[in-house]
Amino acid sequence: MSKLPEVGQKAPPFSLARDGGGTVALKDFKGRKLVLYFYPKADTPGCTKEAIAFNGLKAAFAAADTDILGVSADAVKAQDKFKTKYDLDFPLGSDPEKAMLEAYGVWVEKSMYGKTHMGIERATLLIGRDGKVAHTWPKVKVEGHAEAVLKAAQELA
């Protein structure tokens, strides 16, 4: 079972289909800081709260020269609906094949009501301008998370 990339390690490259068509890739953020957050499913209560929290702090992240990218295994069509419904102002990547999710160690075995299944572990990485992982938040609890990530982004040169 893989795990999140280590702090100081180069972030694994990726290129994903994204909301609105086209693609989004790690190289698109070269020279900028990037909040890369993984969420289990678009338009579910926790994922919605998390997306709204990041979106509400978008201007503060921009002031800290930091971009935001949300990623799930949802199809582009579901990402489009989610983005439109909540007026999200950052890209959403789609990885239904789960190659990027596996590379980042967030496609994991989960258990609910005694049954195990594979799913996305809610996690966030802050990637520095140099393309290296500067901070990780595994097993994220939504409450106060976006604010904690913003503080780390503001402190990162």
Rank of each mutant, 00 (worst) to 15 (best):
H117R: 12
Y39P: 05
K77G: 00
G70C: 08
L125I: 02
M118G: 01
A11R: 07
G114S: 13
K151I: 04
K141Q: 12
G70T: 09
Q79E: 10
H117P: 00
A157T: 12
E102F: 00
G144H: 06
K41Q: 15
I120N: 08
T23V: 11
A11H: 05
A103I: 03
L126E: 01
L150K: 09
G144I: 06
L92W: 05
K98A: 08
A63Y: 03
K83V: 07
S15E: 14
A62Y: 02
G105W: 07
E109Q: 12
K98H: 14
A25Q: 12
D28C: 07
K81H: 08
W137P: 02
K49P: 06
A62P: 00
G22S: 13
T44G: 05
G46C: 05
E50K: 13
K77F: 08
H135P: 01
F82C: 06
A157P: 11
P91Y: 03
N55G: 02
L16V: 06
K85R: 14
G131R: 10
M118D: 13
A153H: 10
D65S: 13
H135N: 04
G46M: 06
P13K: 07
A11V: 08
L36R: 04
E102C: 04
N55P: 03
K83M: 02
K98I: 11
G8M: 02
V24N: 09
K139Q: 07
S111N: 04
L34S: 12
K139C: 03
L125R: 06
K3E: 13
T136M: 10
P12L: 07
H145A: 14
P40I: 10
D65E: 15
A62W: 00
L101A: 07
A73Q: 11
K33V: 13
E155W: 03
G119E: 03
E121Q: 15
V35I: 14
K27P: 00
I68Q: 08
Y113K: 12
A17V: 11
V71P: 05
F54W: 08
D74K: 15
D95K: 15
I120F: 02
T48N: 05
F90V: 02
L88I: 09
L150F: 00
G22Q: 13
L34E: 09
